[in-house]
Design a protein around this nucleic acid. Structure first.
Length: 281
DNA sequence: TGCCCCCTGCAG
DNA sequence: CTGCAGGGGGCA
């Protein structure tokens, strides 16, 4: 589910409630969802939560290990307990009181009774106990993500030197981190570029527009707490609101707000792709 | 580069 | 029933 803005929203919230918390127990309800020996974590105190692209790392300060988390398509981290802090005003997940649910894969209990539920309907996501060294190597080997200072217009231009469709390039996590299907579609609309254009066919001006568009949609996504189009919720079970600002994503059949023409849908790299054939050339 | 796969659920 | 879903790895 989550792309960079959703993961970043979760990361910030986790940082607020988890730092200083001591792990009391970890219950793995689905073995595929957790890798490592849960017993090693008992008594460990969380020191921070970081992120690169769509991957989060929960660190424990001096300890040599950390937790890496990837939510993939349907992963959720729901925090429940006395320390729960609700900030937003968006609709709440109605089953938040009934956790664990049938989709709960891992439950982390903290000293004092607060709990963190890892829900993941499709079981693609994971939590892994790894060494700090390993996590550091993973992060170092990831390309810059959209929020990274190293993600420059020049960098983007370099990555676009390919015959691959521009949408597939900007979604390629080995080239640029953090852009998934929602924000890729909207960024290309904002830039006025057809998603299936070969990357190398973009002019310098178009590349500049795409660069600004990508940063704009990702930053707006973060500001709005992510997009709750289907099953994304923050750690309080609350939705984001970027879905109220979708430009083309999931809007096929509706009118383009710019020109009034019908938004079309095509398939690109096996993913639903939305665009306006008038505004995007 | 283009499939198929990992899973589960839901809309058409 | 089929196809599709905000991700990504492995395979030829």
């Amino acid at each position: 589910m989550p792309e960079l803005p959703e993961v970043e929203t979760i990361r910030r919230q986790l940082g607020e409630v988890l730092v200083g918390k001591e792990i009391e127990a970890i219950e793995v309800l689905r073995s595929k969802s957790f890798e490592g020996n849960t017993k090693e974590l008992v008594g460990k105190v969380i020191k921070g939560v970081s992120r690169k692209a769509k991957i989060m790392v929960v660190s424990f300060g001096e300890w040599e290990k950390c937790l890496m988390i990837h939510l993939k398509m349907t992963g959720q981290l729901i925090f429940w307990g006395k320390s729960r802090k609700i900030v937003g005003g968006h609709p709440t997940l109605d089953w938040v009181n009934e956790l664990p649910s049938s989709h709960t894969r891992v439950v982390i209990t903290f000293a004092g009774g607060d709990k963190l539920y890892f829900n993941d309907m499709r079981v693609f996501g994971w939590i892994r106990l790894v060494t700090n060294k390993f996590a550091q190597t993973v992060f170092e080997n990831l390309p810059p993500d959209v929020t990274d200072a190293k993600f420059s217009e020049r960098y983007l231009r370099e990555k676009l030197k390919s015959t691959k469709a521009v949408k597939l390039i900007i979604m390629d996590q080995e080239k640029i981190g953090g852009i998934g299907n929602i924000y890729a579609n909207d960024a290309l609309f904002l830039a006025g570029i057809r998603p299936n254009r070969p990357g190398k066919s973009l002019t310098k001006v178009e590349t500049g527009k795409l660069y600004k568009a990508v940063r704009r949609v990702i930053n707006l996504g973060i500001k709005l707490g992510g997009a709750s189009a289907s099953n994304y919720f923050d750690i309080n079970g609350m939705g984001g609101s970027y879905q109220d600002h979708f430009l083309v994503y999931k809007r096929d059949g509706e009118k383009c707000e710019e020109c009034g023409n019908m938004i079309k849908k095509m398939r690109l790299g096996g993913r639903g792709t939305f665009y306006c054939e008038v505004c995007q050339v």
